[in-house]
Design a protein around this nucleic acid. Structure first.
Lengths: 300, 300
DNA sequence: AGGAAGATTAAGCGATGCTTACCCAGTCGC
DNA sequence: GCGACTGGGTAAGCATCGCTTAATCTTCCT
């Protein structure tokens, strides 16, 4: 039978991206992990990772084993919590992973409400950038993942997990106050000369914007790259460009210096999802409910 | 994190019923298992087994952990076979557990057909008496379980497994040749003075027979106790009693010396089920299909 | 060219887990 | 009642396993 600890090494290395980083996380030294990984490979008679210059990359067999390893770790964690619960212990823990901008508007209310309703549950929040994090849910490192889908991008396969959409968050075109297009609902083509502010190539809102531009047959110019919507808004206020910003962010931001209007002709809404395991443990459904409420409130 | 090997100890001890027997199976000495079990209990801070004079019995917490442990072991086994498959290995194994009388009529044909169709797969067959064996499927010790339900008994919860009925096997009343009731379809009440042949108290067909008698308001006399339908038939042939025998058994038995008729007024059919994990590995579905065919053939 | 990051190898040491040996408590059979 | 048997727990010793430290290798970057 395979050794669960070695599977854990594989999973941690895969998540961390390098043996050194995984060793750091696990409070071991790199040779320890390297040796365990080698033994796992010898045991199976096939390579699991490609030792590269900059970290390691999983082979095909490694990816297969990673998925199963995550499941094993998840089951192990379940076994422990179930046994402790059966023994009468209930010092619970809820670990939430969320993308950066969710941490600003969606999560805080929910976390505060949850903390008041369940003061004995230890809450943990960590940043997880979409489209990742599904493996962390499977392995039990995260109880709840808050992720999103921008138009033009696709969701990862759920692979045994439960995923639920909690919010459709329209992306509004934000212009400096007094901008000529501020009256109506312009199309992308009407904004040909504008300088755009959005994320770097590969970042979700950049992908969405470029997809929309292609669909409309428009070439657009990105002048400023930031993934932070607060920064985007500040730049728009000083008049150096325009951008697409989710409505929930706008509702939570100071309302001076910019005007938001819908963008016509293209699909512009990001969807926010919660992801958790199929048989969620007790505090998870409560938290999901609070997130649903928080989502309704955030849209107004 | 819990140690998977210790969970394995718990599972084996639970299946074997005693530390000594589990140690035998695992090729260890009893103290080794006893120590690991103690460590597991200390780790969780609660008792998992009640040390008794004759073997051990699981506590409530132990039963909870047993279920999860079986899942962990099943996932570990899956991980290994998946990784080996990804690495190109395909020396497959199919482990089937079946109740005794299935081993006589249902399984042999299916096993023979399967062996011809998949000569490279190592087949294993073991006896498993209903209603047990579900845990062995969860932990991967069995790939396929063939079990049954007699009227008056209920099926165990499937708890994540897949269960499919492959056969409804009528229980016929078997009488010695020339018996006065041999013409029609008698009710239990018509057979008040008869001596019955069936299993010992607790055996499925005994439970079913007694349940039917109670429903009809009849007291019946059991003169001979055997769980073996071949023996039952032989006793009926020599005229010492009557009994209920599944049709598939009768079709495979010599046809002299007895007469089979339906029993009126009560539900008399045993149902045969196959049980396997939810995402069956490659040879399992093929085997299930062969069992379905074999079941159709067995009923004629 | 030199340094930094990441991985591997080799050697040593501590911890873990197994075995053997012994003890204890019921049960069975004479 | 008494000894043998079965099943479990405890103690001590020893081997293996896995981690650490130290050193080597390669690649990339300055």
């Amino acid at each position: 039978m395979l050794d669960a600890n070695r599977l854990r090494v594989l999973v941690e290395v895969a998540h961390a991206g390098s043996i050194a980083a995984a060793a750091e996380r696990m409070a071991f030294t790199p040779p320890a992990l390297s040796q365990q990984l080698t033994k796992l490979e010898n045991e199976l008679g096939c390579a699991l990772v490609e030792r590269g210059r900059t970290g390691v990359r999983l082979t095909a067999a490694g990816r297969v084993l990673l998925e199963h390893g995550e499941r094993v770790l998840g089951e192990l964690r379940d076994a422990e919590t179930a046994a402790r619960a059966a023994a009468g212990e209930t010092p619970q823990r809820l670990s939430v992973g969320a993308f950066a901008s969710a941490g600003k508007v969606l999560v805080p209310h929910a976390l505060a409400d949850f903390g008041r309703a369940h003061p004995h549950v230890r809450l943990t929040l960590s940043d997880v950038e979409p489209p990742g994090g599904y493996g962390l849910v499977t392995s039990g490192d995260l109880d709840l993942l808050i992720t999103h889908r921008y138009p033009g991008t696709s969701l990862p396969p759920v692979s045994g997990l439960h995923r639920e959409r909690v919010l459709v968050d329209p992306l509004l075109l934000v212009l400096p106050e007094g901008h000529p297009a501020a009256g109506g609902a312009p199309r992308l083509a009407d904004l040909a000369g504008e300088e755009w502010i959005c994320g770097a190539p590969g970042i979700s809102n950049r992908v969405a914007l470029e997809g929309a531009a292609e669909a409309e047959g428009v070439r657009l110019t990105v002048a400023y790259e930031t993934r932070d919507y607060e920064v985007t808004l500040a730049l728009i206020q000083v008049g150096v460009g325009i951008g697409l910003v989710p409505r929930t962010i706008l509702r939570a931001a100071p309302t001076t210096g910019w005007v938001a209007v819908p963008l016509a002709g293209v699909e512009t809404a990001r969807e926010v999802y919660v992801v958790h395991r199929s048989r969620p443990r007790s505090p998870v459904p409560a938290m999901v409910e609070m997130l649903r409420q928080s989502a309704r409130r955030a849209l107004g």
